[in-house]
Amino acid sequence: MSAGVTTGTSIPDTDLTALVGWLRSVGVETSGEITCSRVGFGQSNLTYTVRDEAGRQWVLRRPPVGHLLASAHDVAREARILEALEATDVPVPHIYGVCEDAAVSPVPLVAMEFVDGAVLTDRSAGEKVSPEVRSAVGAAMTETLAHIHAVDLDAVGLADLASHKPYAQRQLKRWSAQWEKSKTRERPDLDTLTARLSDNIPEQHETTLVHGDFHIRNVMIGPESGAVSAVLDWELSTLGDPLADIGSTLAYWPERTDAVVLGDPVEVMDGFPDRDQLAQAYLERTGRDPQALRYWHVLGLWKVAIIAEGVLRRARENPANRAAAGVPTPAHVDNFVARAVAVADEAGL
């Protein structure tokens, strides 16, 4: 069988003939030529659908193109987490293998199962599901977060995934360093916010698995039920305070009253819960501390601002890292910082 690619998106720096051979070595049999296409709005690790002539599909993940920050975009680590979670209540795709053969690609590639479901990337996707399903998506996401935070780390072999030291301090240290490496301009207001977060860290009562990037575009849902069929994009996952995850979810979740939004967000459509409803659903499900969640909401917005700045910089350096939704602008980063300051003021931080 031959391997090739039709006109359209290919996987950067990847030998497709060698890729087919590697796929066979991990149990993935392809028929005829394969075609590869970029999928999703993600602008960190890049995701591609691989199709063969028989119509079968698989998914490949690779790091972004260009200069990478140390420890970022580790797709092999991401694959380890997904493999560990396969036997738990957390819905994840099956991993076929991690390719580290330089003859196939100069960077690692992860091959995984293609999960049937919908990703609600924008309003056009949201229009395909009913308001009742949209409401169910919000409930399913908070339930899925509860499952992630209930994973027995020792039982699945993830107790050594990351440090067990206090999580807020680790996040502040890591993302402050990322800001210094990624920033395109000086932001005194972000620096002031960093100091406020450092001075008001709540006590951490537990250490759980933390997804680290849990938002609506990182879950696949059943379009008829709204149930979560797969949680995607685990590259930022670690061990830490579970409230950090719902804080990040709130940071990413836009509302109609927000001054600036990226793209055409689905979350503002009728049926979806607002941020307060999401927070309340999670707190009622888990019994965790609402005041501590306010802190983690601020830290989530602070972190998303830094991530957005990094995406902006990578896209400027290499257009291959751009995704269909476009890239954040300085105005988007400004908005995240302003929202963080507002939540911090309300929380008395």
Rank of each mutant, 00 (worst) to 15 (best):
M1V: 15
S2R: 11
T7Y: 10
G8R: 07
T9W: 12
P12H: 02
A18H: 00
L19D: 00
G21I: 00
R24G: 15
S25F: 00
S25W: 07
E29A: 14
E29V: 11
T30S: 07
I34M: 10
T35L: 09
R38E: 08
R38K: 15
V39I: 13
S44C: 08
V50S: 02
A54P: 06
Q57M: 14
R61A: 05
R62L: 08
P63H: 05
V65C: 11
L69V: 05
A70R: 14
R77A: 09
R77G: 07
A79P: 00
L82E: 07
V90M: 01
V90H: 06
V90R: 00
V92K: 01
V92D: 01
V98F: 13
C99E: 00
E100F: 01
A103L: 04
V104C: 00
P108K: 04
V115T: 12
V119P: 02
T121Y: 14
T121N: 09
V133Q: 12
A140Q: 11
L145G: 03
L153V: 07
D160V: 03
A162K: 06
H164G: 07
S176A: 12
W179F: 15
E180S: 14
E180I: 11
K183W: 13
T184P: 02
P188A: 09
P188E: 04
T192D: 14
L193A: 05
A195H: 15
R196C: 13
I201L: 06
E206C: 14
T207S: 09
T208R: 15
H215R: 13
I216F: 04
R217A: 13
R217G: 15
I221M: 06
I221D: 04
G222N: 15
G222H: 14
E224G: 15
S225K: 06
A227L: 10
V228D: 10
A230L: 12
D233G: 07
W234L: 04
E235R: 05
W253A: 08
V261R: 08
V261M: 13
L262N: 00
D264A: 10
P265Y: 03
G271L: 09
D274A: 06
A281H: 08
E284N: 11
G287L: 10
G287N: 07
R288Q: 12
P290N: 12
L299V: 12
L299G: 03
A308N: 05
E309Q: 06
E317A: 14
R322V: 12
A323R: 05
A323M: 11
V337D: 01
V337M: 14
V343F: 06
A344Q: 10
E346A: 15
A347T: 14
G348H: 03
